[in-house]
Write a protein that binds this DNA or RNA. Structure first.
Lengths: 141, 141
DNA sequence: ACTCTTAGTTAGAACAATTCTAATGTGTTG
DNA sequence: CAACACATTAGAATTGTTCTAACTAAGAGT
């Protein structure tokens, strides 16, 4: 009945972004934005949706992830040539990447300072600076 | 500039790394290491080899690139989810990446300083810190 | 509510980069 | 130079992702 409520937040976000609030966008949005910052791959989110009883095709997961990225609800993180990660934290920040587990963790943007960065070459501008701290070893928490 | 032994340098490197100096490894090594620092993809190197009249299969290019990486003759650079780049500069350094042309450029490691890096999480160690400066726009003069 | 129009979803085919397989060829050692 | 371990190869297989074309649902207007 009251199933409407939990989607309120996502609904607002979608509206603000000018995306039609469809069943699958709402469901995926809820999985992504309810709870803290997340790092997901398309496959992982698809699986998660299935488990949550939401039927969404993998194609839609990819579409949605890209649309969300286009409207800055998500950010793409390139750390692994094998798969693409999407980050619900769209603020300026960096990452730890545990190479053997594929786990990503945020590093606050204002914790880190980079100095000595050369100017962008003629005819180009800096779109973004990514710092990736690659970690080795398991973290069994 | 010794015409006699254009492969001498590569041969030495291969020997030092304990890799058998086969025709294709020598040829690829020459393309990679003669001349300044380079950033190549497997496909690009394969094509280059063909044009230079060296017949190497794509599988061998991939094998060789990985073997060279294993013995630190090359370094892998992850900047683009679509393809893998290999860098002949194995020293500590960072990169400019021109997003629309796919061009990579080195930034000297000692030009840049990063401060405020958090400690690696329990049970892990820092394997490497990558700084990628993503550029937008074409550079042509 | 009903219908139009347009945008969104879908299954499966297509794709591109990379890896694998199993057959053949080559460098090195004794 | 024989013998074996290691390399190379073509092509098939695999993987993550994108495309296609048919279907479905959302929002506007009535």
């Amino acid at each position: 009945m009251d199933q409407d409520r939990p989607f309120a937040q996502t609904l607002t976000r979608l509206r603000a972004a000018g995306l039609r609030p469809t069943r699958q966008r709402l469901a995926l949005g809820r999985l992504l934005f309810d709870g803290g910052d997340r790092h997901v791959t398309a496959e992982a989110l698809h699986e998660e949706a299935q488990k949550a009883g939401v039927s969404v095709s993998l194609a839609t997961v990819y579409n949605t992830l890209h649309q969300f990225t286009d409207v800055q609800l998500l950010r793409e993180v390139v750390v692994d040539s094998a798969r693409t990660y999407f980050d619900t934290n769209t603020s300026d920040h960096h990452h730890f990447f545990v190479e053997n587990s594929g786990k990503l963790m945020d590093i606050d943007g204002d914790k880190i300072a980079i100095s000595g960065l050369p100017d962008a070459p003629e005819g180009t501008g800096i779109a973004r600076v990514d710092v990736i701290v690659r970690l080795q070893g398991d973290l069994r928490s």
